[in-house]
C-alpha cells in the first residue's frame, strides 16, 4: 500500500443495501466489530451519504431501487468512490435471469472497486475499502492541483 499524504482525515463509509440477501451486510458489520476492527484505521460507518467518502453497495438492485441508488450517489460530496461488495452486485451472480433486477451495479452508477465473493470475507471488504481510499487519495490530489 502506498503512503497516504493528501487525504488527511478518517474515511467515512455509507452502506446502501439493495436487494441483498443480508450475507454481505452482516459481513460488513462484522468487519467493524472487535475481531477485524476496521475502526482502528479510522474507517467508520455513517448514517448519511452527505458526509460519506465511500459508498458500499451490496446486492443486486431491484427495479424499484435503481433511482434511489442514483440519488444516494449524487448526494455524496466529491471526491467519492464506490465499492460493490458481493457477487450479485458485481455480475448478477445467481440472480442473473431475474425479471425484477436491473443489471449489475456498474450499469447504474460508476463503480471503482469490486469485491467478489458470496459473501466476501471481512478481510476482503476491508481490502476493497483501502483500494477505494487510494483512489480517493488520487482524486484529492487532482482537486488540490486545480485550486
Amino acid at each position: 500500500m502506498g503512503k497516504l499524504y493528501n487525504f488527511k482525515r478518517s474515511l467515512w463509509v455509507f452502506h446502501a443495501s439493495g436487494g441483498s440477501c443480508n450475507g454481505c451486510d452482516i459481513e460488513i458489520i462484522a468487519a467493524l466489530t472487535p475481531r477485524y476492527d476496521a475502526e482502528r484505521f479510522g474507517i467508520k460507518l455513517v448514517g448519511s451519504p452527505r458526509h460519506a467518502d465511500v459508498l458500499l453497495v451490496t446486492g443486486a438492485i431491484p427495479r424499484d431501487f435503481a433511482d434511489k441508488l442514483r440519488r444516494i450517489y449524487e448526494q455524496m460530496p466529491d471526491p467519492k468512490a464506490v465499492v460493490v461488495v458481493g457477487n450479485c452486485g458485481t455480475t448478477g451472480g445467481v440472480f442473473y435471469d431475474s425479471y425484477n433486477l436491473v443489471g449489475p451495479i456498474d450499469e447504474i452508477i460508476p463503480v471503482d472497486v469490486y469485491v467478489p465473493g458470496c459473501p466476501p470475507r471481512p478481510e476482503a471488504i476491508i481490502d476493497g475499502v483501502v483500494k477505494a481510499w487510494l483512489k480517493i487519495e488520487k482524486l484529492e490530489k487532482q482537486l488540490e492541483g486545480k485550486e
Partner: peptide
Amino acid sequence: RGFAHRGIEYMGMK
C-alpha cells in the same frame, strides 16, 4: 415493503 424483491421463486421454477 417490496424493495428487495428478486423473483427467486420464478427463477427456481426454471
